[in-house]
C-alpha cells in the first residue's frame, strides 16, 4: 500500500522571483486588446511574445510596466521585497531610448544609473563597464544626438545594465542592431537570466535565447 505524499512546497528562496500574470485584460480606445491573459515566469526565464502587428505585444509590456491601466486581472512579482511595487523592479525599453540628445552618452547613463537604482546593487554595472558591453566606450563622451540609429539603441540597452532591476520588459529590442551587437545583447540577456532576472520581450526576430518560452498573441479578434 502506498500513500501519495504531496511534494513539499519549497518556501520561496530570497531572490527567487516569479512573475505571475493572472487573467490580465487591457482596454485601449474601448477595444479589448488583451483578454484574460494568464502566464507565469520564474526567475532566470525569458518569455518571447510574438504575434502580428496589433496583436497587443506592446500593450502587454506597457500594462506589465504599470503604464496602462488594467481592465481586469492582476500582475505581480512574487518573492521580491514586499514594499517595492512591480514597476520599480522593472526596466522598460520601447521604441524611444529615454536619452537626451544634448547630453553625452556617459552623462545620460550616469543619470539613469542614479535615478533608477536607488539601492546600490552589486549586480549593477558601472557606466564604463556597461558601455564596454555594448561596445560604445569610444563614443562615451560624444553627444547622444550624433550617434547612429544602431549606436543609440546600444546606448539604450546599456541603460538596462547600469541599474540592476530583475524584470526586463523589452519592446523590439533589436531594432537597428547589426549582427555583432545582437550577439552581444543575447549574451547580456543570458547573463541577466543567470543572475536570477526575468525577461519579457516582444519581438519579430529571434533573440538568440534558445531556452526561452514563447507566448503567441493571436491577431485581434
Amino acid at each position: 500500500m502506498s500513500i501519495d505524499i504531496p511534494e513539499p512546497v519549497e518556501p520561496p528562496v530570497d531572490g527567487a522571483l516569479r512573475l505571475c500574470v493572472d487573467n490580465l485584460s487591457v482596454l485601449r480606445g474601448g477595444r479589448r486588446v488583451l483578454d484574460h491573459l494568464s502566464f507565469s515566469l520564474a526567475a532566470g526565464q525569458a518569455l518571447i511574445v510574438t504575434g502580428p502587428n496589433g496583436a497587443g505585444k506592446s500593450t502587454l509590456l506597457r500594462a506589465l510596466a504599470g503604464l496602462l491601466p488594467r481592465a481586469g486581472g492582476s500582475v505581480a512579482l512574487a518573492g521580491g521585497p514586499p514594499d517595492v511595487d512591480l514597476p520599480q523592479q522593472a526596466h522598460y525599453l520601447a521604441h524611444s531610448d529615454g536619452l537626451k540628445s544634448a547630453l553625452s552618452v556617459e552623462e545620460n547613463l550616469e543619470f539613469w544609473s542614479r535615478y533608477l537604482a536607488q539601492e546600490p546593487d552589486r549586480r549593477s554595472r558601472t557606466v564604463g563597464a556597461a558601455l564596454e558591453v555594448v561596445s560604445l566606450s569610444h563614443v562615451a563622451a560624444a553627444p547622444f544626438g550624433v550617434l547612429s540609429a544602431g549606436q543609440k539603441r546600444r546606448a539604450a540597452l546599456a541603460r538596462l545594465l547600469v541599474a540592476f532591476r530583475p524584470l526586463w520588459l523589452l519592446d523590439e529590442p533589436l531594432t537597428a542592431l547589426d549582427r555583432a551587437s545582437r550577439e552581444k545583447f543575447a549574451l547580456a540577456m543570458r547573463d541577466h537570466c543567470a543572475l536570477g532576472g526575468l525577461i519579457v520581450a516582444a519581438t519579430h526576430e529571434p533573440l538568440g535565447l534558445n531556452e526561452a518560452k514563447e507566448l503567441a498573441l493571436g491577431s485581434a479578434g
Binding site: 510596466a65 504599470g66 503604464l67 517595492v84 514597476p87 520599480q88 522593472a90 526596466h91 522598460y92 520601447a94 521604441h95 524611444s96 531610448d97 529615454g98 536619452l99 537626451k100 540628445s101 539613469w112 535615478y115 533608477l116 536607488q118
Partner: peptide, 17 residues
C-alpha cells in the same frame, strides 16, 4: 514634452522617486 517624446517620462513612472 521633450521627456514624453524621448521616452524619459515613461521611465519616471517606473522610478521609486
Amino acid at each position: 514634452q521633450a521627456d514624453a517624446e524621448d521616452g524619459s517620462l515613461d521611465l519616471f513612472h517606473l522610478s521609486e522617486t
